[in-house]
């Protein structure tokens, strides 16, 4: 051992660097995700723009049946749909950048406020559905993973998976028939209030339940076989501490990721549910805009949904990174 080494040893361990808490995700990561999201939004909107314009002329839906044959051409010209497609696309991109969209054909005004106005209703439905679906899926997954009863460990999950194979519109109609028509507990026609929210929220939730249940069950089973759990059990930890702190908490990371992916459909993915129940959200607005060939409104709906999707996914990724440090890389 050299003198210098001896000196160092005598001096004790080197001084620790001061602890600076690291953010769960770096700004560079968030910026990168936002840039990718921007490209995705541009791609989605461009795709929809050309797809819509390739399907035909919206003027045909506005022509009265007793109009002369040149009326379509007149309306097409008045609405600017007679210009070359690249020129229309250029105008459209300019309008996106300046925020001045061409008027909705059906509403006769800027389509952006019309779409934004629908977001609270869509969020209310989406969040309700997601919360109910996550809770139900969590209960089903937990019971199927931990129950000693063969019945409880298999039947609830089987029912949930069975529900997955039933189309959403059918689930919605059955719920309407049972709980609105026969029992009269909830209204058939939506008025946008809390009572009108229950059936569509459960319809949407049923789509989430199987996925959440399966993933949560698998995660729980993984954790239940982990070494640290045996140690914790050997230490004589109380059951509720064992279950909540060591089993459930350690299974949440993967489940949250799946819930996050599902959350991306909150804004526009509830199209069928909103249409079945007449829920006044963005999904219903989008589908009706498509049916009426209201191209400006369709594109704005897609834009809003795409932006929402990107933002929600970003938030979920950040949350997942906080809950599960391994995902930070």
């Amino acid at each position: 051992m050299s003198a210098s080494e001896l000196t160092q040893e005598r001096a004790g361990p080197p001084p620790r660097r001061p602890h600076v808490p690291r953010p769960p995700v770096s700004l560079r990561y968030v910026g990168g995700r936002l840039l990718t999201g921007l490209i995705a939004v541009w791609g989605a909107v461009t795709l929809v723009f050309f797809a819509l314009y390739a399907t035909g002329n919206p003027a045909i839906l506005l022509v009265p049946p007793d109009a002369p044959p040149d009326e379509i051409a007149r309306l097409t010209r008045l609405m600017g749909f007679d210009r070359p497609l690249p020129e229309q696309y250029g105008t459209f991109l300019h309008s996106v950048l300046t925020g001045s969209f061409p008027d909705s054909i059906r509403y006769g005004e800027d389509p952006l406020p019309i779409a934004l106005e629908k977001i609270p209703a869509s969020l209310a439905l989406g969040v309700s559905g997601l919360v109910i679906g996550t809770l139900l899926g969590g209960v089903v997954g937990y019971v199927s993973a931990t129950s000693r009863s063969t019945f409880l460990s298999r039947v609830p999950l089987g029912v949930a998976v069975g529900l997955e194979s039933i189309p959403t519109f059918f689930v919605g109609i059955v719920l309407v028939i049972v709980f609105a028509v026969q029992l009269g507990w909830f209204p058939v026609t939506s008025t946008g209030d809390a009572a009108s929210l229950v059936l569509p929220a459960f319809t949407l939730a049923f789509a989430f339940v199987p996925t959440v249940a399966r993933v949560f069950r698998t995660a729980l089973l993984d954790v239940l076989q982990a070494e640290h759990l045996r140690t914790a059990r050997a230490k004589g930890l109380p059951r509720h501490t064992l279950v909540w702190r060591h089993v459930v908490a350690n299974s949440l990371g993967t489940t949250l990721n799946v819930v996050g992916i599902q959350a991306g459909v909150l804004l526009g993915g509830a199209v069928v549910t909103e249409s079945v129940f007449g829920w006044p959200g963005l999904g219903q607005l989008s589908i009706n805009a498509v049916q009426n060939r209201d191209y400006p409104l369709v594109i704005v709906c897609v834009l809003v949904i795409a932006v929402g999707f990107v933002l929600i996914n970003l938030v979920v990724d950040v949350l997942a990174a906080i809950v599960e440090p391994r995902l930070r890389s």
């Binding site: 209960v139 129950s147 000693r148 009863s149 239940l224 064992l242």
Partner: peptide
């Protein structure tokens, strides 16, 4: 060993 299911969820 699986911890027994809690009564609540059942």
């Amino acid at each position: 060993h699986r911890p027994s299911a809690r009564r609540g969820p059942v």
